[in-house]
Design a protein around this nucleic acid. Structure first.
Lengths: 348, 348
DNA sequence: GTGAAAGCGCTAACAA
DNA sequence: TTGTTAGCGCTTTCAC
């Protein structure tokens, strides 16, 4: 490793180009009102010196950081068990990158971490935040609200309203669930069960609601609670089979859950889809394509969700820097709901 | 959203506590040499005002950012298809967090991104970098070297040495592979095949070497090239079966590959493990436990790898801030190799 | 159109 | 032990 290279400053560039710091600053920041020959000279000096602006110095005066925090609050291990999280990050990263913003990742696992995140957000290190995986009792939204950082949520926040508006991006969980169940109905199935996700998350609640929209007269015993994991899927599937041995279809709250259910069905000698049809949710490829049989499932465009969240946030940040203040995007509780599509494979 | 709150400054705290800015700074930064009563007064003022230090101002003078970049260079989609990446991030995040460092995530997908990353790293926005998923022809290491940022690599970098030292953390890919193959030998298998990973990554090469260490006289036709994906596993498995119909075991370069192989075996009516035993690598739970049959595989502690990388980097950063300069940790090309363990399930 | 000068909020000598 | 002071590198009025 070499000596810490003494990085050139604006001053140095100015000297080299024979102009003032102010002029260099203007050129570097693309402000107009500098005459062409000077621009050229400055550009060359920047090039020759390998000048890169010092972000800290800049932030100190502009109060912008061109950085966004991504907060992933997941006490359990779920996020880490499926690629959901990676895909969202990718979408976010692409969008932020194309707007020259940095992504600061904040992973939290317990209560202690919340305080830390709250402090960080309140510390004004980033211009905004993208927040995921909220659970109903999560203290994080409140901390974030108090921190006063512009925020976009991933997934509909679960708090009963009155707590002010929230900007969020979500999949059409309810509509997607309806489509899944209708598909099963269209297959001639009549004894359709549902394995829910973790019901402290709105995505699970919404999918359950979608199920009920179609199965208006569903026997309550046809619904078993899962938790979005394969293990939960297994447990729930066993319950269902014990309670209602004659069921002929299952809609699982996600693909992981479905994979657990499939395992139990195989173990109990039920053929899929002949005896029991199975539909999942997510279309996580490494899961959905690898199960036996491959899973019919509801696809949501995870990467696009991430992208859209970032886009909404950046737009909001731009608006704020115009006037001094701003409401949540649009001034009212606003959510953007992305469509889902049913992907047919062999399981239903 | 409310007005942008005018955050209190050191000055404000000092005024409130009736001391100088310097004293407040000392208290805030935990420097000793301030008498108890004053400390107390300052603490109270900080509390009352809700003071949070302005990181930009601090960095401007200290030239520390307490931030580390995590660079994940993955042109393909592989990282996003398995939870590898999430686990490493978790390990890194935990370690950084406990040392009050932030994690800046840099995802790259193509050549254009490399330049951007290089610029960012050279821009002195972060104190160091953790870099993953290097491929043999990757231009990134060179960019990073030129940026002069202290770096720890995840996985042994593939360049032929002479290009200077590199600090890295890796699993014992070769040893793990040996153990896997020996296990198959111990099972009485004699016609053992190997499906490699993407051979432009050292992990794949090392696992192949491990295979060869044990199967010294292996028929070259018993090795088929894969790419760490299920699809690659399928393709390779078909090849192997066509070339050597009498093989009785397969060691796959990772679990995803193994899952593809299993699918082909099932499709061709070969029983696992009776006819053909299969061993994977990684022990990615959602994959390894869900396959049919569950996968015997070589576990590497991914999260610990991430943790260790962060620890090494932070230690190095601390050392540097002591004297002005420093060599790569230990002053020589140095790698830390983490042990692997064989996990027995049903497939072998 | 360009430059001079005044800070942004903080740390780190140095004095007291 | 505490306070005073001089910048860190940049943007941004405000004159010219």
């Amino acid at each position: 490793m070499t000596e810490t290279a003494p990085r050139p400053t604006l001053e140095a560039v100015a000297a080299r180009a024979g102009v003032s710091r102010a002029t260099v600053s203007r050129v570097v920041n693309g402000a107009d009102g500098v005459r062409e020959p000077l621009v050229e000279r400055v550009r060359r000096a920047v090039e020759e010196l390998g000048y890169v602006p010092n972000q800290a110095a800049r932030s100190l005066v502009t109060r912008r950081h061109d950085a966004v925090a991504v907060v992933i609050a997941e006490p359990e291990n779920r996020v880490f068990a499926d690629p959901f999280f990676a895909l969202q990050l990718r979408g976010i990263s692409k969008e932020l990158t194309s707007h020259d913003n940095q992504l600061v990742l904040l992973l939290t696992e317990g209560r202690e971490d919340h305080a830390r995140v709250g402090r960080y957000l309140a510390g004004g290190h980033v211009d905004g935040a993208l927040v995921f995986s909220l659970h109903l009792d999560d203290p994080l939204p409140e901390l974030i609200r108090r921190a006063g950082v512009p925020t976009v949520f991933g997934g509909r926040p679960g708090w009963s309203d009155g707590r002010g508006s929230a900007v969020y991006v979500d999949s059409d969980n309810r509509g997607g669930a309806r489509e899944a169940v209708r598909h099963l109905v269209g297959l001639g199935r009549t004894r359709i069960a549902h394995i829910t996700g973790a019901l402290d998350q709105t995505s699970a609640v919404d999918r359950l609601d979608g199920f009920r929209d179609v199965m208006t007269d569903a026997d309550p015993r046809m619904v078993a609670e899962g938790d979005f994991t394969p293990g939960g899927g297994e447990r729930a599937m066993r319950e269902l089979l014990d309670r209602c041995p004659d069921l002929d279809a299952v809609f699982a709250a996600n693909d992981l859950t479905a994979s657990g259910a499939l395992r139990v069905l195989r173990e109990r000698g039920r053929r899929v889809p002949e005896d029991i049809a199975v539909v999942g949710f997510d279309d996580m490829l490494p899961i959905a394509e690898q199960t036996d049989p491959p899973l019919t499932t509801v696809r949501q465009d995870i990467e696009e969700m991430g992208r859209l969240m970032a886009r909404l946030l950046l737009r909001d940040l731009d608006r704020r820097s115009g006037d001094g203040t701003a409401e949540g995007v649009g001034g009212a509780p606003s959510g953007v709901i992305l469509p889902t599509t049913l992907v047919r494979r062999a399981s239903a």
